[in-house]
Structure formats: C-alpha cells, structure tokens
C-alpha cells in the first residue's frame, strides 16, 4: 500500500484530462487574441446566434415555470410568450445570416467539415424545434398547423409514431428533447470552432509562403 497520492496522470480521469487539455488548452478555449483577417461584421452573426439561443432558452424556461396554459390568461405570461416568440424570430434571423456568411466563406475548408455539418444539423433541428413550439401554442394557429402537418408526417410514416395531434407528446419534445439536442449540437459546434480555429481566407497562403523559393510551397 502506498501512502503517496496517486499521480494525476493515472487512470481514466487522468487520460481524459490529458486529452482534453492537449486538444483545447485554456488559451485556445478562451482566446484573448484572434487572427487579424477576422475583420468583418459577418463574424458577429455566430455570437448573435448563440446569444439569441440563450434568450430563447431563458424565455422558454420562464414560460415553463407556470406551464403551457399560463400565457393565455396572464398579462405577464403574454409578455413572456412574446419574449419567446421574438427571441425565436431573432434566433432564426441571425442563424440564417450566419449560415449564409459561412457558406460564402466556404468555412468547411481545412478539416472543418464536421463544424459545417454540426451547424447544418443544428439548423435543421432548430426548424423542428420551432415547429413543435408552434404546435403547442394551444390556439387556432396550433390547431391548424397540427391538422395540416399530420398529413406530411403520416405520408412518410412518421405520423404513426410522432403524432402532431398529441399535445402532450409535442410538448415534451418541444421543452425537453429538441432543446437538449440543440444544446448538445451547439456546444459541439462551438467547441469544434475553438478546436480548429477560424477558417483563413480562401486561397490564403501560409503567412510566410512568399519567403519560400518557388516550387517548395508544398513543404511549407
């Protein structure tokens, strides 16, 4: 039996910590500098998306405090519902602008394909989440959306399992399952951005390329 404390590098925990710190050292995870080529307003759509997602989650959480029927009968509830609606409109607004910007920057270059893919799947999941939110409004709009959407879902067999006419099922998906998936995908997406760094401009040579004699760029 040893009286010495176990070496920190031992065990599964030590292995995981080594891997995590090696992949994302603190200065990479929370940087205080950025590449000088990041000189455009379009870079702010990403942080705007994350921020509005936070507002969506908080306003949705406030609605959850009093349950789904509250906002129909309370002035405060109505305002909180309005916060939730407009934060979603803002979220989708900046999310799509972020998508446009990253597309025109071909931001998947340089081992960033997974960043693009997680972002695209998060976008599609957001559409599903918003849709399930419209289904649980408990008003005329949600009645009609459910009536119409059932045909789409049934036509491909999904409706047999995922019943848009079942308020309870849609509510649990909207407030638990979908948000959980969006949060996980968003976290993964943002960590990938930190891990791979911000994509350099299209056709940008490595910064010192012009000092290298012609024909030897490959090694640079």
């Amino acid at each position: 039996m040893s009286s010495a404390a176990p070496a920190p590098e031992h065990g599964w925990t030590g292995w995981l910590r080594r891997r995590v710190v090696a992949a994302l050292p603190p200065e990479k995870l929370l940087p205080d500098s950025q590449p000088a080529y990041m000189s455009s307003w379009v870079y702010l759509f990403g942080v705007a998306t994350v921020s509005s997602l936070a507002v969506v989650l908080v306003s949705g959480g406030l609605l959850a405090l009093k349950g789904p029927a509250w906002w129909h009968v309370s002035a405060v509830g109505k305002y909180v519902n309005s916060l939730h609606l407009w934060s979603v409109e803002l979220f989708m607004f900046v999310l799509v602008l972020h998508l446009w910007a990253k597309f025109f920057m071909a931001a998947w270059r340089g081992r960033r394909v997974l960043t693009w893919m997680t972002g695209a799947v998060a976008f599609l999941t957001s559409i599903g989440t918003a849709f399930s939110g419209y289904l649980v409004q408990q008003n005329f709009d949600s009645q009609w959306i459910a009536d119409q959407a059932k045909d789409g879902m049934n036509a491909v067999g999904i409706g047999a399992f995922w019943n848009v006419l079942d308020f309870g099922q849609m509510l649990t998906w909207h407030i638990v399952l979908f948000p959980a998936v969006i949060c996980l995908l968003s976290a993964w997406h943002v960590l990938l951005v930190r891990l791979r760094g911000i994509v350099p401009p299209i056709d940008a040579p490595a910064p010192d390329t012009h000092l290298i004699p012609p024909g030897q760029e490959e090694r640079a």
Binding site: S33, A36, S39, S40, W41, V42, L44, F45, E89, F93, V96, L97, W100, A101
Partner: peptide, 24 residues
C-alpha cells in the same frame, strides 16, 4: 419585411467597414 431585413443586414455586414483593431 423580415426577409428584406435579413438581406439588408447581410449586405451591410459585408460592406460596412469593420473598425480596424491593433495588430499584435
């Protein structure tokens, strides 16, 4: 209006000059 605003904001974000930071 929403879609027009999206296009407008995107075009402005691309075209407006970004304040130049100090180089390090």
């Amino acid at each position: 209006v929403v879609i027009a605003l999206m296009v407008l904001v995107f075009v402005l974000a691309v075209l407006l000059p970004f304040p130049r930071g100090r180089k390090r």
